[in-house]
Write a protein that binds this DNA or RNA. Structure first.
Lengths: 203, 203
DNA sequence: AGCGTAATAAGCAAATTTGACTAAGCCGGG
DNA sequence: CCCGGCTTAGTCAAATTTGCTTATTACGCT
């Protein structure tokens, strides 16, 4: 719950403020927070005594907005949560890795093409990130550590780009997917590799 | 839904088989699948006509197990899903990046220490991964592309380890977090940086 | 002056995920 | 021989997330 952190920073805020801030950091991508979750989270945190509803103003006939503040307990909990992320290593679920584990289900040439395409997408991302990093807008109006986050993405992206290239070559080279020992015992039959058995494709 | 892929491979299976396979790949870490989700997914996929329940055996008085098979429609859908992951780039949500964005909330020395600790955790991970990669067990009984997945993790991990070291140094160097222009306009007041205002810490 | 579009501020039902729980069979040790 | 613990197979309620909807006001354009 990094919502808590945002309320901690920005002290008294209402839900919509949090939402805008999150969207402006495009945090829906790298955090786990879609706009809809915010109000639920705010109410839950209030129930748990980590936040306190300060006031409820109403401007015209628009929906009333409730302003929240963090309690002492909330600050404490936030620091616990924060430290958990700083000191521990959590593997993050990556759908591409999941998809890659089905490599034998892809025709070799398509797999290689997709990897090269991926490398290009990553390269494009890297370049636009570099541009942001060097842009005056980021250099002058954002805290320095925002740039450092970009550098982390850059480092990871470069590593992954290289990997894509190397693996694409190996796939094209035609090496067998099966482990050295059990060369002949098919096991992955039914998948499209070099010889797809035309099974029940008659619509 | 990579559950579908697993059923596609392993053709007729019951839920518990899928669960074991997923756990043996420790897929609960890198995919998005806890054991509890499996049965729901199987039923949902069956409702959508992507799977077909084949039979329901009962051994003794243990819970009946239902065996599933993939339909032609299911194969089609799986390939669509698979290609979506192979050809597109999805940013994955990373809780550490989220936590790092609150860097100014951490005392400098703790932040640096945490980063060095992280580098060490990553190094340990790298070494155990290297060991797996070279182990006979993986080399002889797992498809080659499993090793390739390890290499991707390795590449990313090495990149991140380097970053941790570099950033730890910068934090220790004492550079200001604020952007070059607005050096003096505090803005992040209330956070623990060089001078923590002893607010309401009595108890 | 009128009209369409964007911004403001949330609410809600439905879909998903999670983690804990059941409850019987099997196996080895004391 | 019988007790405890592991494996088998799956269920279930609760927590979370998602994406869509509502309803007013401000703004820009012609």
């Amino acid at each position: 719950m990094m919502i808590l952190g945002l309320v901690r920073w920005m002290q008294p805020v209402h839900g919509y403020d949090v939402r805008r801030e999150l969207l402006s950091w495009s945090a829906d991508k790298w955090a786990n927070v879609q706009p809809g979750s915010i109000y639920h989270a705010l109410r839950k945190l209030t129930d748990e005594g980590l936040l306190r509803a300060v006031s409820t103003e109403q401007v015209g006939a628009r929906p009333a907005r409730t302003t929240y503040e963090v309690t002492a307990k909330g600050v404490e909990e936030f620091e616990t949560l924060l430290r958990a992320q700083w000191w521990q290593l959590h593997e993050v679920p990556d759908p591409f890795v999941a998809a890659f584990s089905f490599l034998p289900a892809m025709p070799r040439d398509e797999a290689a093409a997709a990897l090269r395409n991926r490398a290009n997408l990553i390269r494009a991302g890297i370049e636009s990130m570099r541009a942001s990093l060097e842009s005056d807008w980021v250099r002058n109006t954002k805290p320095v550590h925002v740039g450092w986050m970009f550098e982390l993405w850059l480092a990871r992206a470069e590593a992954e780009m290289g990997w894509c290239g190397r693996i694409a070559e190996r796939i094209e080279s035609g090496v067998s997917y099966l482990p050295a020992s059990m060369e002949q015992a098919e096991g992955w039959s039914g998948w499209t590799d070099s010889a797809a058995p035309g099974e029940d494709d008659a619509k």
